[in-house]
């Protein structure tokens, strides 16, 4: 099994600890992980802004870096969804996995050595949830499930809670966060507020971009609550 780690551009630059945790976690689970060094971006920022037609170079670069692998695993639902839906290569589309999806569906992880004795608010990011179907969705008449929760259940000490309106969007939305600044921020403030009502210590999710947005709001409010990517919990000793 040849597994490559895909580190989205902004994770590489701003949240390296998320990529580190992903890498370490996979290695702990016995996976040999390759990190193609010339990777850049999945192309989503441009495509969601309406410039999918300009992502050719980006797509080609991605292909060059990742074509040789059975699985391409990354820690952000949104980028993975973009690749799955829009990358021109069928090979790439069928081998990309979001990390939780990979742990549950491919590695079928049944136990973890993680320990995280804190109360956390679980944030289901839309693209992971509705796009990749990482969990059930409140709009549908379906049995509840969550791959994220399933993994958290393997972590010692952690208590996770859902906010009211369990799967409302946080308002990040790619370029939306700046082009529609007012709505984006208001959505983020509302989301943060409903998490804070649960008296949690961390907001935890699977999409670093949503976390970055909520972190920006938390910090501006001077809150002590921090954000963490779920792999940081799953990899926490």
């Amino acid at each position: 099994m040849r597994v490559a780690l895909f580190v989205p551009c902004y994770v590489d630059q701003f949240y390296p600890q998320v990529a580190v945790a992903t890498l370490e976690l996979l290695e702990k689970l016995g996976v040999e992980v390759h990190v193609p060094s010339n990777q850049t971006c999945c192309g989503q920022p441009m495509a969601n802004a309406g410039f999918a037609s300009s992502t050719e170079g980006c797509d080609t670069n991605f292909f060059k870096n990742f074509e040789g692998f059975d699985y391409i695993v990354g820690p952000t639902g949104s980028c993975i969804l973009h690749l799955k839906e829009h990358h021109p290569s069928e090979k790439i589309r069928s081998s990309v996995y979001e990390i939780c999806e990979f742990l549950v569906d491919v590695l079928k992880v049944k136990s973890l050595s993680a320990n995280f004795p804190h109360k956390i608010g679980l944030h289901q990011s839309c693209h992971g949830q509705r796009g990749l179907r990482l969990s059930s969705m409140t709009e549908l008449n379906e049995a509840p499930f969550s791959k994220l929760a399933q993994l958290l259940d393997l972590v010692k000490g952690v208590e996770y809670v859902y906010p009211e309106r369990a799967d409302e969007c946080c308002g990040f939305g790619g370029t939306f966060c700046v082009t529609e600044e007012a709505v984006s921020v208001r959505m983020g403030q509302d989301r943060v507020e409903s998490h804070l009502k649960n008296e949690i210590e961390f907001i935890v999710g699977g999409d670093t971009s949503c976390l970055m947005h909520m972190e920006g709001i938390l910090k501006r409010q001077g809150s002590k609550v921090q954000v963490k990517h779920i792999v940081e919990i799953l990899n926490h000793a």
């Binding site: 949240y15 990190v35 920006g216």
Partner: peptide, 22 residues
């Protein structure tokens, strides 16, 4: 910077993941 108006910017780490990995 419309991001900064009502949100803090993410803290910039010393190095990127790629350079850490190297």
């Amino acid at each position: 910077n419309p991001w900064f108006k009502q949100r803090e910017m993410p803290e910039a780490p010393k190095e990127s993941f790629q350079s850490w990995y190297k």
